[in-house]
Protein backbone atom coordinates (compact mmCIF):
# COMPACT_ATOMS: atom_id res chain seq x y z
CA UNK A 1 0.00 0.00 0.00
CA UNK A 2 1.26 3.40 -0.99
CA UNK A 3 0.62 5.34 2.18
CA UNK A 4 2.32 8.46 0.90
CA UNK A 5 -0.06 8.58 -2.08
CA UNK A 6 -3.04 7.94 0.20
CA UNK A 7 -2.09 10.76 2.52
CA UNK A 8 -1.36 13.20 -0.28
CA UNK A 9 -4.68 12.36 -1.90
CA UNK A 10 -6.43 12.97 1.40
CA UNK A 11 -4.69 16.33 1.82
CA UNK A 12 -5.57 17.35 -1.71
CA UNK A 13 -9.18 16.33 -1.12
CA UNK A 14 -9.31 18.39 2.06
CA UNK A 15 -8.60 21.61 0.16
CA UNK A 16 -9.90 20.45 -3.21
CA UNK A 17 -12.87 21.45 -5.31
CA UNK A 18 -15.42 19.27 -3.51
CA UNK A 19 -14.39 20.66 -0.14
CA UNK A 20 -14.86 24.23 -1.41
CA UNK A 21 -18.20 23.48 -3.04
CA UNK A 22 -19.61 21.72 -0.02
CA UNK A 23 -18.19 24.28 2.39
CA UNK A 24 -20.14 26.97 0.52
CA UNK A 25 -23.28 24.85 0.36
CA UNK A 26 -22.99 24.15 4.09
CA UNK A 27 -22.33 27.81 4.95
CA UNK A 28 -25.66 28.60 3.28
CA UNK A 29 -27.35 25.78 5.17
CA UNK A 30 -25.82 27.06 8.37
CA UNK A 31 -27.64 30.36 7.87
CA UNK A 32 -30.88 28.49 7.12
CA UNK A 33 -30.77 25.65 9.55
CA UNK A 34 -28.07 26.43 12.08
CA UNK A 35 -29.07 30.01 12.81
CA UNK A 36 -32.70 30.35 11.69
CA UNK A 37 -33.94 26.80 12.12
CA UNK A 38 -35.26 26.63 8.57
CA UNK A 39 -35.27 23.06 7.29
CA UNK A 40 -34.10 23.62 3.75
CA UNK A 41 -33.78 20.18 2.16
CA UNK A 42 -33.36 21.66 -1.29
CA UNK A 43 -29.93 23.25 -1.07
CA UNK A 44 -28.89 21.27 -4.15
CA UNK A 45 -31.56 23.26 -6.01
CA UNK A 46 -29.74 26.51 -5.22
CA UNK A 47 -26.48 25.02 -6.48
CA UNK A 48 -28.25 23.80 -9.62
CA UNK A 49 -29.88 27.14 -10.35
CA UNK A 50 -26.53 28.93 -10.12
CA UNK A 51 -24.61 26.36 -12.14
CA UNK A 52 -27.24 26.13 -14.85
CA UNK A 53 -27.82 29.88 -14.84
CA UNK A 54 -24.16 30.33 -15.70
CA UNK A 55 -23.87 27.38 -18.10
CA UNK A 56 -27.03 28.10 -20.04
CA UNK A 57 -26.30 31.81 -20.37
CA UNK A 58 -22.84 31.17 -21.75
CA UNK A 59 -23.13 27.82 -23.56
CA UNK A 60 -26.69 27.99 -24.88
CA UNK A 61 -27.21 31.71 -25.45
CA UNK A 62 -23.62 32.67 -26.07
CA UNK A 63 -23.73 35.63 -23.68
CA UNK A 64 -20.75 36.89 -21.66
CA UNK A 65 -19.44 35.04 -18.60
CA UNK A 66 -20.21 37.77 -16.05
CA UNK A 67 -23.82 37.92 -17.26
CA UNK A 68 -24.03 34.20 -16.52
CA UNK A 69 -22.94 34.88 -12.93
CA UNK A 70 -25.57 37.61 -12.64
CA UNK A 71 -28.31 35.33 -13.94
CA UNK A 72 -27.18 32.52 -11.65
CA UNK A 73 -27.36 34.80 -8.60
CA UNK A 74 -30.72 36.17 -9.66
CA UNK A 75 -31.89 32.59 -10.11
CA UNK A 76 -30.94 31.78 -6.53
CA UNK A 77 -32.83 34.83 -5.21
CA UNK A 78 -35.91 34.01 -7.27
CA UNK A 79 -35.81 30.38 -6.10
CA UNK A 80 -35.66 31.53 -2.47
CA UNK A 81 -38.67 33.77 -3.03
CA UNK A 82 -40.61 31.03 -4.80
CA UNK A 83 -39.89 28.58 -1.99
CA UNK A 84 -40.44 31.02 0.81
CA UNK A 85 -43.70 32.63 -0.22
CA UNK A 86 -45.85 29.51 0.13
CA UNK A 87 -44.05 27.87 3.04
CA UNK A 88 -42.48 30.30 5.47
CA UNK A 89 -45.82 30.92 7.17
CA UNK A 90 -46.30 27.20 7.67
CA UNK A 91 -44.78 24.61 9.98
CA UNK A 92 -41.12 23.69 9.62
CA UNK A 93 -41.74 20.28 8.07
CA UNK A 94 -43.67 21.83 5.19
CA UNK A 95 -40.63 23.84 4.19
CA UNK A 96 -38.61 20.62 4.24
CA UNK A 97 -41.01 18.86 1.91
CA UNK A 98 -41.47 21.79 -0.43
CA UNK A 99 -37.75 22.51 -0.73
CA UNK A 100 -36.82 18.91 -1.42
CA UNK A 101 -39.66 18.74 -3.96
CA UNK A 102 -38.51 21.97 -5.62
CA UNK A 103 -34.94 20.72 -5.91
CA UNK A 104 -36.19 17.56 -7.58
CA UNK A 105 -38.41 19.60 -9.91
CA UNK A 106 -35.35 21.55 -11.00
CA UNK A 107 -33.26 18.42 -11.51
CA UNK A 108 -35.96 16.57 -13.45
CA UNK A 109 -36.64 19.59 -15.62
CA UNK A 110 -33.04 20.29 -16.58
CA UNK A 111 -32.40 16.62 -17.39
CA UNK A 112 -35.53 16.19 -19.49
CA UNK A 113 -35.38 15.53 -23.23
CA UNK A 114 -38.13 18.13 -23.67
CA UNK A 115 -35.76 20.94 -22.69
CA UNK A 116 -32.61 19.31 -24.02
CA UNK A 117 -32.01 22.21 -26.37
CA UNK A 118 -31.68 24.59 -23.44
CA UNK A 119 -30.26 22.51 -20.60
CA UNK A 120 -28.55 19.69 -22.47
CA UNK A 121 -30.59 16.79 -21.04
CA UNK A 122 -28.85 14.21 -18.90
CA UNK A 123 -25.48 15.04 -20.46
CA UNK A 124 -25.67 18.57 -19.14
CA UNK A 125 -23.67 21.48 -20.46
CA UNK A 126 -20.02 22.20 -21.05
CA UNK A 127 -17.92 24.83 -22.78
CA UNK A 128 -18.90 27.76 -20.60
CA UNK A 129 -15.85 28.14 -18.37
CA UNK A 130 -13.57 29.78 -20.95
CA UNK A 131 -14.34 33.30 -19.79
CA UNK A 132 -13.33 32.35 -16.27
CA UNK A 133 -10.02 30.72 -17.17
CA UNK A 134 -9.16 33.67 -19.46
CA UNK A 135 -8.84 35.66 -16.22
CA UNK A 136 -6.40 33.13 -14.75
CA UNK A 137 -3.31 34.98 -13.39
CA UNK A 138 -1.38 31.73 -12.75
CA UNK A 139 1.07 30.92 -15.60
CA UNK A 140 0.70 27.46 -17.06
CA UNK A 141 2.68 24.97 -14.96
CA UNK A 142 2.37 22.60 -12.03
CA UNK A 143 2.34 24.14 -8.53
CA UNK A 144 3.71 21.57 -6.15
CA UNK A 145 5.13 21.14 -2.67
CA UNK A 146 6.69 17.74 -3.00
CA UNK A 147 4.02 15.55 -4.50
CA UNK A 148 1.19 17.67 -3.15
CA UNK A 149 -0.05 20.22 -5.63
CA UNK A 150 -2.30 21.41 -8.42
CA UNK A 151 -2.04 22.66 -11.97
CA UNK A 152 -2.67 26.31 -12.91
CA UNK A 153 -6.39 25.80 -13.64
CA UNK A 154 -6.96 24.07 -10.31
CA UNK A 155 -4.91 26.77 -8.55
CA UNK A 156 -7.13 29.47 -10.06
CA UNK A 157 -10.49 27.90 -9.20
CA UNK A 158 -9.28 26.90 -5.72
CA UNK A 159 -7.98 30.40 -5.05
CA UNK A 160 -11.28 31.94 -6.08
CA UNK A 161 -13.17 29.23 -4.20
CA UNK A 162 -11.35 29.66 -0.91
CA UNK A 163 -11.57 33.46 -1.17
CA UNK A 164 -15.33 33.04 -1.58
CA UNK A 165 -15.41 30.72 1.43
CA UNK A 166 -13.48 33.26 3.51
CA UNK A 167 -15.71 36.13 2.41
CA UNK A 168 -18.84 34.10 3.11
CA UNK A 169 -17.59 33.25 6.58
CA UNK A 170 -16.81 36.92 7.21
CA UNK A 171 -20.30 37.96 6.14
CA UNK A 172 -21.89 35.29 8.31
CA UNK A 173 -19.73 36.34 11.25
CA UNK A 174 -20.64 40.03 10.86
CA UNK A 175 -24.32 39.28 10.46
CA UNK A 176 -24.60 36.84 13.32
CA UNK A 177 -23.00 39.10 15.92
CA UNK A 178 -25.46 41.86 14.99
CA UNK A 179 -29.01 42.46 16.21
CA UNK A 180 -30.14 41.02 12.87
CA UNK A 181 -28.46 37.72 13.70
CA UNK A 182 -30.01 37.86 17.16
CA UNK A 183 -33.47 37.97 15.62
CA UNK A 184 -32.62 34.96 13.46
CA UNK A 185 -31.40 32.93 16.42
CA UNK A 186 -34.49 33.93 18.36
CA UNK A 187 -36.71 32.76 15.49
CA UNK A 188 -34.95 29.41 15.63
CA UNK A 189 -35.91 29.14 19.30
CA UNK A 190 -39.51 30.29 19.09
CA UNK A 191 -40.93 32.38 16.32
CA UNK A 192 -44.15 33.30 18.12
CA UNK A 193 -42.15 34.90 20.90
CA UNK A 194 -40.23 36.95 18.34
CA UNK A 195 -43.46 37.98 16.65
CA UNK A 196 -44.86 39.09 20.00
CA UNK A 197 -41.86 41.41 20.31
CA UNK A 198 -42.76 43.28 17.12
CA UNK A 199 -40.41 41.62 14.64
CA UNK A 200 -41.64 40.68 11.19
CA UNK A 201 -40.67 37.02 11.42
CA UNK A 202 -41.77 36.23 7.87
CA UNK A 203 -39.52 38.90 6.45
CA UNK A 204 -36.51 37.73 8.47
CA UNK A 205 -37.03 34.13 7.45
CA UNK A 206 -37.23 35.21 3.84
CA UNK A 207 -34.01 37.22 4.18
CA UNK A 208 -32.34 34.20 5.74
CA UNK A 209 -33.58 31.93 2.97
CA UNK A 210 -32.26 34.31 0.31
CA UNK A 211 -28.87 34.89 1.94
CA UNK A 212 -28.30 31.21 2.67
CA UNK A 213 -29.46 30.33 -0.82
CA UNK A 214 -27.14 32.82 -2.47
CA UNK A 215 -24.18 31.64 -0.34
CA UNK A 216 -24.99 28.07 -1.35
CA UNK A 217 -25.31 29.08 -4.99
CA UNK A 218 -21.68 30.21 -4.90
CA UNK A 219 -20.91 26.52 -4.44
CA UNK A 220 -22.81 25.85 -7.65
CA UNK A 221 -20.67 28.35 -9.58
CA UNK A 222 -17.43 26.97 -8.17
CA UNK A 223 -18.43 23.43 -9.03
CA UNK A 224 -19.47 24.32 -12.57
CA UNK A 225 -16.29 26.30 -13.22
CA UNK A 226 -14.01 23.80 -11.54
CA UNK A 227 -15.36 20.88 -13.59
CA UNK A 228 -15.93 23.06 -16.67
CA UNK A 229 -19.06 20.96 -17.17
CA UNK A 230 -22.25 20.13 -15.30
CA UNK A 231 -24.67 17.23 -15.30
CA UNK A 232 -28.14 17.34 -13.74
CA UNK A 233 -27.70 14.34 -11.47
CA UNK A 234 -24.98 16.05 -9.46
CA UNK A 235 -27.77 18.12 -7.97
CA UNK A 236 -29.77 15.27 -6.45
CA UNK A 237 -30.99 15.08 -2.88
CA UNK A 238 -27.84 13.30 -1.75
CA UNK A 239 -25.87 16.51 -2.37
CA UNK A 240 -28.09 18.35 0.09
CA UNK A 241 -27.69 15.65 2.70
CA UNK A 242 -23.93 15.58 2.26
CA UNK A 243 -24.01 19.28 3.08
CA UNK A 244 -26.13 18.57 6.17
CA UNK A 245 -23.68 15.90 7.29
CA UNK A 246 -20.84 18.39 6.87
CA UNK A 247 -22.70 21.08 8.78
CA UNK A 248 -23.51 18.78 11.68
CA UNK A 249 -19.99 17.34 11.64
CA UNK A 250 -18.55 20.81 12.17
CA UNK A 251 -21.29 21.84 14.58
CA UNK A 252 -24.30 23.89 13.49
CA UNK A 253 -24.63 27.60 14.34
CA UNK A 254 -20.88 28.29 14.38
CA UNK A 255 -19.29 30.46 11.76
CA UNK A 256 -16.39 28.21 10.83
CA UNK A 257 -18.11 24.87 11.31
CA UNK A 258 -19.09 24.30 7.66
CA UNK A 259 -15.48 24.86 6.62
CA UNK A 260 -14.07 22.56 9.27
CA UNK A 261 -16.77 20.05 8.47
CA UNK A 262 -16.07 20.12 4.74
CA UNK A 263 -12.34 19.69 5.20
CA UNK A 264 -12.68 16.80 7.62
CA UNK A 265 -15.47 15.19 5.61
CA UNK A 266 -13.64 15.11 2.29
CA UNK A 267 -10.41 14.05 3.92
CA UNK A 268 -12.24 11.12 5.52
CA UNK A 269 -13.94 10.11 2.28
CA UNK A 270 -10.69 10.29 0.36
CA UNK A 271 -8.94 8.23 3.01
CA UNK A 272 -11.54 5.47 3.04
CA UNK A 273 -11.79 5.41 -0.77
CA UNK A 274 -8.06 5.22 -1.25
CA UNK A 275 -7.35 2.78 1.54
CA UNK A 276 -10.08 0.45 0.29
CA UNK A 277 -8.96 0.73 -3.33
CA UNK A 278 -5.34 0.11 -2.44
CA UNK A 279 -6.32 -2.79 -0.22
CA UNK A 280 -8.36 -4.33 -3.02
CA UNK A 281 -5.55 -3.82 -5.54
CA UNK A 282 -3.00 -5.26 -3.13
CA UNK A 283 -5.29 -8.25 -2.53
CA UNK A 284 -5.81 -7.57 1.19
CA UNK A 285 -9.54 -7.55 0.55
CA UNK A 286 -10.93 -10.12 -1.84
CA UNK A 287 -12.60 -8.49 -4.81
CA UNK A 288 -15.52 -10.87 -4.33
CA UNK A 289 -16.20 -9.01 -1.10
CA UNK A 290 -15.95 -5.54 -2.48
CA UNK A 291 -14.61 -4.42 -5.83
CA UNK A 292 -13.39 -1.03 -6.96
CA UNK A 293 -16.76 0.12 -8.30
CA UNK A 294 -18.40 -0.76 -5.00
CA UNK A 295 -16.04 1.48 -3.07
CA UNK A 296 -18.26 4.38 -4.19
CA UNK A 297 -21.30 2.67 -2.68
CA UNK A 298 -19.38 2.02 0.50
CA UNK A 299 -18.65 5.76 0.69
CA UNK A 300 -22.37 6.56 0.65
CA UNK A 301 -23.10 3.95 3.30
CA UNK A 302 -20.41 5.53 5.40
CA UNK A 303 -21.93 9.00 5.00
CA UNK A 304 -25.35 7.69 5.98
CA UNK A 305 -23.96 6.01 9.04
CA UNK A 306 -21.90 9.07 9.94
CA UNK A 307 -24.97 11.29 9.77
CA UNK A 308 -26.91 8.92 12.01
CA UNK A 309 -24.16 8.52 14.56
CA UNK A 310 -23.41 12.24 14.72
CA UNK A 311 -27.04 13.14 15.19
CA UNK A 312 -27.47 10.54 17.91
CA UNK A 313 -24.26 10.85 19.87
CA UNK A 314 -22.79 14.25 19.00
CA UNK A 315 -25.40 16.57 17.53
CA UNK A 316 -23.23 19.53 18.49
CA UNK A 317 -20.52 18.36 16.08
CA UNK A 318 -16.82 17.97 16.68
CA UNK A 319 -16.22 21.26 18.42
CA UNK A 320 -19.69 22.49 19.34
CA UNK A 321 -21.11 23.21 22.76
CA UNK A 322 -24.15 21.10 23.43
CA UNK A 323 -25.95 23.87 25.29
CA UNK A 324 -25.86 26.13 22.28
CA UNK A 325 -27.25 23.95 19.58
CA UNK A 326 -30.88 24.16 18.63
CA UNK A 327 -31.29 20.64 17.42
CA UNK A 328 -32.58 19.08 20.60
CA UNK A 329 -34.77 22.00 21.52
CA UNK A 330 -37.95 20.62 20.05
Amino acid sequence: MDWQRIIINALEASVGLQAVVFALAAIGLNVHFGYTGLLNFGQSGFLAVAAYGLAVTVATFDLPFWLGIVFGLLGAVVLALLLGIPTLRLRADYLAIVTIAAAEIIRLTVRSVTFEGTFGGSDGRQGFAGGFYDLNPYPKRQYNIGEFGFNERQMWILTVGWVLVALSCLIVFLLMRSPWGRVLKAIREDEDAVRSLGKNVYSYKMQSLIIGGVLGSLGGFVYALGQASIQPDIFGTDTTFFAYTILILGGAARVASPVVGAIVFWMLLSLTDNVLNEAIDAGYISSSVINNTQVGQFRFMLVGLLLMLLMIFRPQGIFGDRREIALDAR
Binding site: Q294, Q297, F300, M301, G304, L305, L307, D328, R330
Partner: peptide, 25 residues
Protein backbone atom coordinates in the same frame (compact mmCIF):
# COMPACT_ATOMS: atom_id res chain seq x y z
CA UNK B 1 -33.48 10.31 25.37
CA UNK B 2 -35.80 13.10 24.36
CA UNK B 3 -34.26 13.48 20.91
CA UNK B 4 -36.04 16.28 19.06
CA UNK B 5 -38.22 15.68 16.06
CA UNK B 6 -35.89 17.46 13.68
CA UNK B 7 -32.88 15.55 14.99
CA UNK B 8 -34.83 12.32 14.55
CA UNK B 9 -35.74 13.34 11.01
CA UNK B 10 -32.07 13.82 10.21
CA UNK B 11 -31.24 10.43 11.74
CA UNK B 12 -33.81 8.90 9.40
CA UNK B 13 -32.14 10.65 6.47
CA UNK B 14 -28.83 9.07 7.44
CA UNK B 15 -30.54 5.73 7.69
CA UNK B 16 -32.12 6.19 4.27
CA UNK B 17 -28.77 6.92 2.64
CA UNK B 18 -27.12 4.01 4.43
CA UNK B 19 -29.80 1.47 3.54
CA UNK B 20 -30.17 2.64 -0.05
CA UNK B 21 -26.50 2.14 -0.83
CA UNK B 22 -26.43 -1.06 1.19
CA UNK B 23 -29.20 -2.32 -1.10
CA UNK B 24 -27.19 -1.17 -4.11
CA UNK B 25 -24.22 -3.10 -2.81
Amino acid sequence: RGTGLIAAMIVSIGMSIFLRYFYLY
